[in-house]
């Protein structure tokens, strides 16, 4: 089976983040964890934590606002990159027994037969010769949250571009309400009512880092607390009961996918002339089978999940037997990476 190169690289990056934060726990610099990570006054803030504390405390803290917009800027440039390259949750899930086998099976079924493949890839044109087609020509949908976050000129562009949609053409798949958005709404409502960041109590990212912290304190200071047992247990239960936590529950992912509607850079771009399914009709659907977010990047318009959910994990481009998928900085300017 094809190796997913980025898979291992991502694991290294995520473990590196955990390591840096764990070392930070025990010195006097105060870099914090993913809730707020930084040096002195410069930091990134968990966007969900920011909105929650804003609702709960009803206080607009300029520094927190700046940190929040830094995160918004990152999401605009890199999309939901946090979910593939920083968040420990998908990595933990990958370590669950059986999950890797399942994925491998799914991919094996989606790849073309061993006989069909060589013939199809041989017929491929030169990688450099053809321009890439962007998957999503339409701009982002007219979501209120997105609109509020957008500069005025983008809004104007959106307005004019949104018109053809009304003429009954295929609706661009930019935003889809799913259960995560409702959970997000519930978390924010509850936070506003009860006055404390409610989701933080059960956030698997927070639980992971808390477990690391309390475990380290157990060994360093002999500090015993039920937290050391309860937190990892809750974490494991969440991830076992909700194998699809990221796709169905996570309000943090949902919030970021609302912002990533503005993301135009480094989007997966499929070269239709290279794709052996589109160009030659070979029976292949490896890219959508490998996508943890259920995005069918060949057909973004009818895909179950919107391209906003792309976490730039690069699994699709790794798995594609025809090397038809790349992540160019902007559409048109295709750069062959790797």
């Amino acid at each position: 089976m094809k190796k997913l190169k980025a898979n291992n690289l991502r694991a290294i990056v995520i473990l590196g983040v955990v390591l840096v934060i764990a070392v930070g726990y025990f010195n006097l610099v105060g870099i914090g964890n993913l809730s707020d990570f930084g040096w002195g006054l410069i930091s990134t803030i968990c966007p969900l934590g920011f909105v929650e504390t804003l609702l709960a405390s009803k206080l607009l803290i300029p520094r927190a606002v700046i940190s929040f917009f830094a995160v918004v800027a990152i999401v605009i440039v890199l999309g939901r990159v946090f979910c593939a390259w920083v968040c420990p949750v998908p990595l933990l899930q990958r370590w669950f027994p059986g999950s890797r086998k399942q994925q491998e099976k799914r991919i094996a079924e989606a790849l073309p037969d061993a006989e069909a493949l060589p013939a199809a890839t041989e017929a491929l044109p030169d990688a450099e010769a053809l321009p890439a087609v962007d998957l999503l020509d339409e701009p982002s949908g007219d979501l209120p949250v997105q609109a509020a976050l957008m500069p005025a000129e983008t809004k104007l562009k959106l307005k004019s571009a949104a018109k053809p949609k009304l003429k009954g053409a295929a609706k661009p798949n930019n935003f889809k309400l799913d259960s995560r958005h409702v959970v997000l709404g519930g978390a924010l409502l509850s936070t506003a009512i009860f006055g404390f960041p409610v989701f933080c109590l059960v956030c698997p990212v927070g639980l992971t880092f808390a477990s690391v912290l309390f475990l380290m304190r157990l060994f360093a200071f002999g500090e015993t607390t039920w937290t050391i047992l309860v937190f990892p247990l809750v974490l494991v239960l969440e991830l076992v009961f909700f194998r699809k936590w990221c796709k169905t529950i996570c309000p943090l992912g949902a919030l970021m996918s609302l912002i990533s509607g503005l993301n135009k850079t480094f989007r997966p771009s499929i070269d239709n002339s290279r794709c052996i399914k589109t160009a030659q009709g070979v029976n292949c659907s490896a890219c959508s089978a490998v996508c943890a977010e259920n995005i069918d990047i060949r057909n973004p318009k009818t895909s179950q999940s919107s391209l906003n959910n792309c976490t730039k994990c690069r699994n699709c481009s790794d798995i594609c037997p025809a090397h038809a998928i790349s992540f160019p900085f902007l559409k048109g300017k295709q750069k062959t990476e790797d």
Binding site: L28, V29, S35, A56
Partner: peptide
Amino acid sequence: LGACLRCERCREI
């Protein structure tokens, strides 16, 4: 309680 993110920066510093 409304504002604390549990970021641990105060504790570390």
